[in-house]
């Protein structure tokens, strides 16, 4: 296959993004900047994993924070009680959350469309309520605290370094984003991705060309669950505290805003939405906390979400590509 401009295009934005993110701390290492960057990494991973299900196979799961929460609680146990290392915790969490996703998927994919959304939302609420009530297991509303911080031991080092500074966390976290991007691209730009699209657009038609919709839904769900489970595991070790509210519905709302305002089912859309809406809150807080309360920020988000749904169904990404196309058109005509 010849490598054309066309086939390279999907890689441009993620590579530019990663280069910027890798270099930024060299110029500015303030706590604010690092905090924002870590936030961007976290939300991008979360949004990409969410989009595998919501954007690509079209099943809007409102229960994805379950994998995050259980992955985090699992890590608190594995790292705190069993002394498992950080990478081990992430892998075990990813594995079990993929397994959970498969089992849950077998049940939940019996229902579809809006019923699926309602069912997964119900599951999310049950999980959060259980986490709140099962105080012996989770600490309830008082949270599980004291999750050990990661220790990094590389071959040339004499003793392990305890990862505790934000900059260390950030550079250890960044490869996980790269991995997520690679998985996302590898899946969606391949035949599997084509089958995902087929399943999303028309399940009946998909079965008529030999695709078993459930199989692909499970693949997407398990991948998403694994990535989010690993993310929860990582986050538990970064903030050292896990609360039932880490699975709250506003997490899902943020994901919906990022993915659907940015542009669902498209990498550039998720990147645009994820970056904008993970940078915006800290900036609004820093700049405008004097002028407006968090409620106004949320109202703004709500308005943006509704506005995009009403006037830009393709999201910001669709708008951007329309503008780009127009510029190209003008340039061509000019020459």
């Amino acid at each position: 296959m010849n490598i054309s401009k066309q086939s390279l295009r999907p890689f441009i934005l993620p590579i530019v993004l990663l280069v910027i993110m890798a270099l930024l701390p060299l110029f500015n290492q303030s706590g604010f900047t690092l905090n924002v960057l870590i936030n961007v990494v976290r939300w991008l991973i979360f949004a990409l994993a969410f989009d595998l299900v919501a954007g690509h196979i079209g099943s809007v799961s409102l229960g994805q924070p379950i994998f995050y929460g259980i992955g985090a609680y699992l890590t608190a146990y594995l790292a705190g009680k069993l002394g498992l290392g950080w990478l081990g915790c992430m892998l075990v969490s990813a594995f079990f959350m993929a397994l959970l996703a498969l089992l849950a998927g077998l049940a939940f994919f019996r229902i579809r469309h809006v019923t699926f959304a309602i069912g997964t939302l119900g599951a999310a609420i049950v999980t959060q309520l259980v986490a709140n009530s099962a105080e012996k297991l989770t600490g309830g509303a008082l949270c599980t605290t004291g999750v050990p911080r990661p220790q990094l031991l590389l071959p040339f080092m004499e003793s392990a370094i305890k990862i505790s500074k934000p900059i260390q966390f950030y550079y250890l976290f960044l490869p996980f984003l790269i991995l997520t991007l690679v998985v996302y691209l590898a899946v969606t730009k391949s035949r599997i991705g084509r089958a995902f699209t087929a399943v999303r657009e028309d399940e009946v038609r998909a079965s008529a060309v030999g695709i078993y919709p459930l199989r692909y839904k499970l693949v997407a769900f398990a991948l998403s669950g694994a990535l989010i489970g690993a993310l929860g595991s990582w986050q538990a070790q970064y903030v050292t505290v896990i609360c039932p509210s880490d699975m709250a519905q506003d997490i899902t709302t943020s994901l919906l805003i990022m993915v659907f305002v940015g542009g669902a089912g498209r990498l550039s859309g998720v990147i645009i939405g994820g970056v904008i809406f993970s940078i915006l809150p800290p900036f609004l807080q820093a700049v405008g906390s004097k002028y407006f309360q968090p409620a106004y920020q949320q109202i703004l988000y709500g308005l943006i979400l509704v506005g995009v749904m009403l006037y830009m169904p393709d999201g910001l990404d669709g708008l951007a590509s329309r503008i780009l196309r127009r510029f190209r058109g003008i340039r061509k005509e000019g020459v």
């Binding site: 699209t197 060309v209 030999g210």
Partner: peptide
């Protein structure tokens, strides 16, 4: 029934790949 957001070529390719 076709897959509207897939390209014409991909519509065909997706009909072949499972086989």
């Amino acid at each position: 029934k076709i897959f509207p957001t897939l390209t014409v070529l991909d519509n065909l390719a997706v009909s072949i790949q499972q086989h």
